[in-house]
Computed example of a mutant assay.
Amino acid sequence: MSREIEFRCWNEHGKCFHGMNELGDKLHLFNNKNPSYVVEQFTGLLDCNGVKIFEGDIVKMFYQDWLDKTQVIMFMEGTFGYGDGKFMFSAFHCLDMDMRGASHHFSYAFEVIGNIHQHPEILT
């Protein structure tokens, strides 16, 4: 089994995203000591519209009639999940069962509607 590994980088000064491959020899900029650049990883999942879901994305979660929330995609303790930006409520590996325990492809229950850098107002 293979998984696509992909990163994007938010440039706080330029207020834009860069793909990691377009940054080339500037990779030394990305460390915990330089808050001007935020590196975010692709989760390996696509939303209901086929959009790649990255850490830092704001998603609308929906499932039938009982779930309709806005959450942030996060990476904590070695796994991706969703939360409010500070606390991760659930890891993705816990989500691939529905209320009856039947397996389903849960990424169809997410729609990327923004990200925490360009659209923080969505969370308020």
Score class of each variant (00 low, 15 high):
residue 2 S to R: 12
residue 22 E to W: 03
residue 68 D to T: 06
residue 72 V to Y: 00
residue 109 A to I: 00
residue 25 D to H: 11
residue 10 W to C: 03
residue 41 Q to F: 07
residue 20 M to N: 09
residue 82 Y to S: 05
residue 61 M to Y: 05
residue 88 M to R: 07
residue 107 S to A: 12
residue 17 F to W: 10
residue 49 N to H: 08
residue 122 I to G: 07
residue 60 K to Q: 14
residue 50 G to Q: 06
residue 31 N to R: 08
residue 92 F to I: 02
residue 83 G to P: 03
residue 68 D to N: 13
residue 37 Y to D: 04
residue 117 H to T: 06
residue 114 G to L: 01
residue 92 F to V: 03
residue 22 E to T: 09
residue 79 T to Y: 10
residue 70 T to I: 10
residue 93 H to C: 07
residue 73 I to S: 00
residue 28 H to P: 09
residue 124 T to C: 13
residue 70 T to P: 00
residue 78 G to F: 08
residue 10 W to Q: 02
residue 97 M to H: 15
residue 35 P to E: 08
residue 2 S to N: 14
residue 87 F to Y: 15
residue 9 C to Y: 05
residue 45 L to K: 12
residue 48 C to P: 01
residue 44 G to W: 00
residue 87 F to R: 15
residue 99 M to Y: 12
residue 121 E to G: 10
residue 34 N to Q: 11
residue 58 I to H: 01
residue 64 Q to H: 11
residue 57 D to N: 07
residue 86 K to Q: 12
residue 38 V to A: 09
residue 8 R to H: 04
residue 76 M to C: 09
residue 15 K to R: 12
residue 40 E to Y: 06
residue 33 K to N: 15
residue 94 C to I: 05
residue 59 V to N: 00
residue 67 L to D: 08
residue 17 F to V: 01
residue 24 G to R: 06
residue 57 D to T: 00
residue 113 I to N: 02
residue 4 E to T: 12
residue 75 F to T: 01
residue 101 G to V: 04
residue 73 I to K: 00
residue 23 L to H: 03
residue 60 K to H: 15
residue 91 A to L: 04
residue 103 S to R: 15
residue 37 Y to S: 01
residue 97 M to T: 10
residue 123 L to V: 10
residue 86 K to G: 13
residue 84 D to R: 01
residue 35 P to K: 04
residue 14 G to D: 13
residue 97 M to G: 11
residue 85 G to L: 09
residue 122 I to V: 15
residue 38 V to K: 09
residue 37 Y to G: 04
residue 46 L to R: 06
residue 67 L to P: 05
residue 67 L to K: 08
residue 68 D to I: 02
residue 122 I to Y: 07
